[in-house]
Simulated scan of single mutants.
Amino acid sequence: MAPRPIAGVDGCRTGWVAVVTDADLNASPIVHVAVRFADLLARLPDDTIVAVDMPIGLPERIGPDGRGPERAVRPLLGMRQSSVFSVPSRSAVFAQSFQEACAIARATSDPPKAVSKQCFYLFDKIREIDALLTAEPLLIARVFEVHPEVAFWRLNGEQAMSLPKKVKSRPDPPGLDERRALLERCGLPTALFQAPLAKGVGADDRLDAAACCLIARRIATGAARPFPDPPAHDARGLPIAIWA
């Protein structure tokens, strides 16, 4: 029986970037780039386990410190926990402007909390995945929310990475090198990271997609677990959990 195909996906300036291989890491990884998440999925076999760095599952109200997954994983990451930002309520994510999103987020959170610009800029991508999984609920069984720094924590023996990936919002070479070396120790080939980058894809995007791919492998083999465990679900039945 052929090993199950797996893919790790990260957002990028072009849209989405995926690192695709199989659960045995026998196939040379392929990098796909697509404008739309649905187009990316269309390129993959129907049984591919997909681990995507994007929030899935939007509660109607938000408690202290964000959704359950965010609260669960931050303590694991030490100095890297600032990479896990709070996602607001569903109605705030579907607001039409930053000002409206902040107003709705305050009204639907306890204590009241506005939206960070970093999170607001992801709303289009969050809505894109939300609409796809709502329209095609069978995808819920194979599309999982992950977070790169939580992935690196898991792959690094449940130790947070010692160096930041970005400094002053720009990719930091020592932090990228630390993560690349870890991914190579986990079985991904050096050639994957030496290949030219596609237009609109940063070196950090490819590294994050590769880390997500290795968590997709853990999901496919039953070695991953959700945070929180068991996952919560939103009003549409979408799971609310970060897998690692």
Rank of each mutant, 00 (worst) to 15 (best):
P226M: 00
G237F: 08
A211N: 11
L207V: 12
G202R: 14
I215G: 02
A203T: 09
I219V: 15
G237E: 09
P228E: 11
G222I: 00
D204C: 07
G222P: 03
P226Q: 03
A220D: 10
L214T: 06
F193D: 09
A220G: 08
D229M: 04
F227T: 06
A203N: 12
L214K: 02
D205Y: 04
F227V: 02
C213S: 12
P231C: 05
A235R: 15
D205A: 06
L214R: 07
I215S: 00
R206N: 02
G202H: 02
R206I: 05
A224S: 14
R236A: 15
D229N: 15
P228M: 09
A220V: 10
K199E: 15
A224W: 05
L238Y: 04
A223M: 08
R217D: 08
D234R: 00
P230D: 00
A232C: 08
T221E: 12
R225T: 01
I215F: 02
I215Q: 11
A198M: 01
L197D: 03
A203K: 14
V201T: 08
A232R: 14
D208N: 13
I219F: 09
Q194H: 07
R217F: 10
D208H: 11
P231F: 03
G202Y: 01
L192P: 02
L238D: 09
G237I: 00
A195H: 08
R217A: 12
G202L: 10
P230V: 03
H233N: 07
A210W: 02
R217K: 14
R206E: 00
L214S: 08
P231E: 03
C213A: 15
V201W: 13
I215L: 06
P196R: 05
L197I: 03
A198Y: 07
A224K: 09
T221W: 08
G237T: 01
D208T: 10
P230E: 03
P226R: 06
A235M: 04
A232H: 14
L197V: 01
C212P: 08
D204Y: 11
A203R: 15
L192Y: 00
A203I: 07
A198F: 03
L214G: 04
A203M: 12
T221P: 06
